[in-house]
């Protein structure tokens, strides 16, 4: 495989709500929830933010980091389960806002939380086939959750964009290989015209998240003849803090490999942005030669696993964009009333 990441960028809205603030409204025990989910607070989109604005900010940062002419981007895919329009692509908004139009192909992807990594695979194929010079995949969400549902403690907002190109001097991380594991597993869904998703409760664990993440990771390791010891870091989709740590343990990865990319505790589950923001956080601190395993998970269900090797391009342009931690630390706390207004739970 002769493709890699040439640029990446993230965006996380500045508003945060604490688990305590949500628990207070529903009469729940915040300590129990924080212990159970390993989540302290989550990001909330501002009144003028949505998946398109988050995707644009992340995409612009990725273009700055890659330091390429945006007109060389031949494909843009935006993965999300909260596209602002039911019909009308987010990808065209992103393409226009980064200056990639009109010579490109673009589309929106939907596969619960893994639509962004599915976009990366599409770009990999198109670059490798020589159809395009660069392709950009974005995973961004302003995740919905019904008031009082367990999801309300974690459903957050954020996104990341990755630009894929042929390996060369711009390469930040080359992609050694990818492997996907997909089955029809109805653990989480949202019907047409319905505002909030429904889920299978505990069913989202063993037969859904763990089966797919573990099978995808094992499949990739087998394909590349690698073992957990060959990796410096590993990032697994982060619906909460516990799941990725448990998946790591089952696969034989240590906490030390996983904690550097674990960001859900401070921003919540950014759905399509989750695995990608975790990967971006690892890249923010990685050095040439480091090997990274990244495994996404999308309900419904499937996982995409990637092995990446960090290249010298990681040292290019590091100051061109804000780091993941800059966004994590830039925050403004809101109460549940404000949250209810921002999420349009309250409408006048």
């Amino acid at each position: 495989m002769d493709v890699g990441i040439v640029g990446y960028g993230v965006y996380i809205p500045q508003y945060r709500i604490k688990v305590e603030e949500i628990a207070k409204v529903w009469g729940a025990d915040p300590e129990q929830i924080k212990r159970g989910l390993m989540v302290e607070e989550k990001s909330v989109p501002g009144p003028d933010e949505d998946t398109a604005t988050i995707a644009v900010e992340a995409a612009r940062a990725a273009v700055r980091r890659a330091n390429i002419d945006p007109r060389e981007i031949g494909a843009i895919y935006v993965g999300s389960e909260s596209h602002p329009y039911a019909v009308k692509p987010t990808a065209t908004i992103v393409a226009e806002a980064v200056g990639a139009t009109p010579d490109l192909t673009a589309a929106d992807y939907e596969f619960a939380c893994k639509a962004g990594t599915a976009g990366i695979q599409t770009c990999m194929g198109m670059v490798e086939a020589g159809m395009i010079e660069y392709g950009m995949a974005v995973g961004a969400d302003t995740a919905q959750s019904a008031p009082g549902d367990a999801l309300e403690y974690t459903a957050a907002a954020g996104g990341a964009a990755f630009i894929v190109g042929r390996n060369g001097k711009r390469t930040i991380a080359s992609i050694d290989g990818t492997y996907s594991y997909t089955t029809d597993t109805p653990d989480f869904w949202r019907r047409e015209m319905r505002p909030y998703p429904k889920h299978g409760g505990r069913f989202t664990g063993e037969p859904a998240y763990f089966r797919h993440i573990i099978s995808a990771a094992k499949g990739l390791l087998q394909q590349l003849k690698l073992t957990p010891e060959d990796f410096t870091y590993a990032v697994f989709h982060q619906p909460n803090g516990k799941f990725p740590l448990k998946a790591a343990k089952i696969l034989g990865f240590s906490k030390e490999q996983v904690l550097p990319g674990l960001v859900v505790t401070k921003i919540g589950n950014t759905y399509s942005g989750s695995t990608l923001i975790g990967l971006a956080l690892i890249l923010d601190n990685a050095r040439p030669g480091d090997r990274i395993l990244a495994v996404s998970y999308g309900s419904g269900a499937g996982s995409d696993a990637f092995s990446l090797t960090v290249q010298d391009g990681i040292n290019n342009n590091g100051d061109a964009t804000l780091k993941v931690m800059d966004y994590v630390n830039r925050k403004e706390y809101i109460d549940y009333g404000t949250y209810a207004k921002l999420r349009r739970l309250l409408v006048r």
């Binding site: 003028d48 398109a52 900010e57």
Partner: peptide
């Protein structure tokens, strides 16, 4: 920064 300025209506353009 790139933001929503307003929307026409719930059914309208953003």
């Amino acid at each position: 920064t790139f933001r929503q300025i307003r929307e026409e209506s719930q059914d309208g353009l953003i």
